[in-house]
Measured scan of single mutants.
Amino acid sequence: TTYKLILNGKTLKGETTTEAVDAETAERVFKEYAKKNGVDGEWTYDDATKTFTSTE
């Protein structure tokens, strides 16, 4: 399943996707990605669109 991440950081904005077996796995991948890029925001998830959003 393809999951999408929308980053709305103070210094980094953008989108990326990952293939994962479930939302929990995708969330771990995306949170590590955000951390590596210095984004520490509030997380939301929309199951209908398989989209995570992190907003600082």
Rank of each mutant, 00 (worst) to 15 (best):
L5R: 00
T51P: 00
E56S: 06
V39C: 07
T1E: 12
L12T: 12
L12Q: 09
G9A: 06
E24L: 11
G9L: 07
T1S: 10
K36S: 11
A34I: 06
A23Y: 15
D46F: 03
L5W: 05
E19S: 10
E42Q: 12
G9K: 03
G9V: 04
T44I: 08
A34D: 01
K31D: 02
K4D: 02
A34M: 07
A23H: 10
T44R: 09
D47F: 08
T18K: 03
E15W: 14
A48H: 10
E27L: 15
K10T: 11
K35A: 13
E32C: 08
A26Y: 00
A20N: 02
E56H: 06
F52W: 06
N8R: 11
K35M: 12
K4T: 14
F30S: 01
L7I: 13
E24M: 11
E27Q: 11
T1D: 12
V21I: 14
V21A: 14
L5K: 01
L5Y: 04
W43S: 00
K50D: 02
F52T: 00
T11I: 11
V29L: 11
V21M: 12
L12N: 08
E19M: 14
I6P: 00
R28P: 02
T17Y: 14
K50P: 01
T16I: 15
T11C: 15
K13W: 11
V29G: 03
K35L: 13
E42K: 11
A34N: 02
T25K: 05
A20G: 03
T51M: 03
T16A: 12
N37K: 13
G38C: 07
D40L: 12
A23D: 05
V29M: 10
T1I: 14
R28N: 07
D47H: 11
D47S: 13
E19W: 15
K13S: 10
T1G: 09
L7M: 10
G9C: 08
K4M: 07
V29C: 09
E24K: 13
L12R: 09
N37F: 15
D40S: 10
E56M: 07
T25P: 01
T44V: 09
D46A: 03
W43D: 00
F52I: 01
T51A: 03
K10Y: 09
E42A: 11
T16M: 15
T2V: 14
G14Y: 15
K50S: 05
G38K: 06
T55V: 09
D40N: 14
D46W: 03
G41T: 05
E19C: 15
E27P: 00
L12Y: 15
A48R: 11
R28E: 07
A20L: 02
Y33S: 01
D22C: 05
I6Q: 04
K13L: 08
K10L: 14
I6D: 02
F52E: 00
K31A: 05
E32V: 07
Y3L: 02
T18E: 04
E24Y: 09
E56C: 07
K31H: 08
E32A: 12
A34E: 04
D22Y: 03
E27M: 14
G14F: 15
I6K: 05
V21C: 13
E56A: 06
Y33D: 01
K50L: 08
K31N: 04
K13D: 05
W43V: 03
T44W: 07
E42S: 11
Y45T: 00
Y45S: 00
K4S: 05
A48P: 06
E27C: 15
T51Q: 03
L5I: 03
D46Y: 03
A48S: 12
N37R: 13
N37T: 08
T53D: 01
W43L: 08
T17E: 10
L7R: 00
K10A: 11
T17V: 09
T18I: 15
G9S: 09
T2G: 03
T53H: 07
D22Q: 02
G38R: 06
T53A: 05
K31Q: 07
E15K: 07
T2F: 09
T16N: 05
K13F: 11
Y45G: 00
L12C: 15
F30D: 01
K13C: 14
T18M: 13
E15V: 13
T53N: 05
T49P: 00
K4G: 03
L5Q: 01
T1W: 11
T55K: 06
N8H: 10
F52H: 01
K31V: 06
Y33T: 02
F30A: 02
D22P: 00
K13T: 12
A23W: 15
S54H: 07
F30E: 00
D46Q: 04
V21E: 12
G14R: 14
R28D: 04
A34P: 00
W43P: 00
T1N: 12
E32M: 07
K13G: 05
Y33H: 04
N37G: 05
V21W: 13
T18D: 02
A26T: 00
T53R: 07
K35R: 12
T1V: 12
E56Q: 07
D46V: 04
E27G: 08
K31S: 04
T51H: 01
E24C: 13
E15F: 14
L7F: 12
D40T: 11
T1P: 09
V21L: 13
F52R: 00
T17L: 09
G41E: 04
T2P: 04
T2A: 06
L7K: 00
I6Y: 06
D47E: 14
T11E: 11
T51N: 01
T17I: 08
E19H: 13
L5T: 01
E32P: 01
K35H: 11
F52N: 00
K13A: 09
D22W: 02
E56K: 05
L5A: 03
E32F: 05
E19N: 13
T53G: 02
D46R: 02
D46L: 03
T49A: 07
T16R: 10
W43K: 00
V29Y: 15
L7G: 01
K10R: 13
Y33Q: 02
D46K: 02
W43E: 01
E27N: 05
K50Q: 09
T44P: 00
K35N: 08
E56W: 07
L12G: 08
T49Y: 04
A34H: 01
L12S: 09
E32G: 04
E42C: 12
L7A: 02
K50M: 07
A48C: 09
Y45W: 02
K10H: 13
S54K: 03
A48N: 12
R28M: 10
G38Q: 06
K50R: 12
T1R: 10
E32D: 11
L5E: 03
L7T: 04
I6L: 07
E15R: 07
K31I: 08
K31E: 03
G38E: 05
T55S: 09
E56D: 08
V39K: 02
N37Q: 14
T17Q: 10
G38D: 06
K35Y: 10
E19K: 12
N8G: 04
T49M: 05
A26Q: 00
T2K: 12
K50W: 04
E19R: 13
T18W: 10
K13N: 09
T55D: 08
T25W: 08
V21N: 12
K35T: 09
L7E: 01
K35F: 11
E15Y: 13
A48M: 11
I6R: 05
V21Y: 12
E19I: 15
S54C: 15
L12M: 14
T51Y: 01
D40I: 13
A26D: 00
F52G: 00
A23M: 13
K50V: 02
T25H: 13
G9E: 03
I6H: 05
E19V: 15
S54E: 04
K31L: 07
E56I: 07
K36L: 13
D47Y: 08
G38M: 06
N8A: 08
E15P: 03
E19Y: 15
V39A: 05
L5C: 12
T11H: 14
D47N: 09
E27I: 08
K36R: 12
T49N: 07
L7H: 03
F30N: 01
T49V: 05
N37A: 14
T2I: 14
D47V: 10
A34S: 06
D46M: 03
V39E: 04
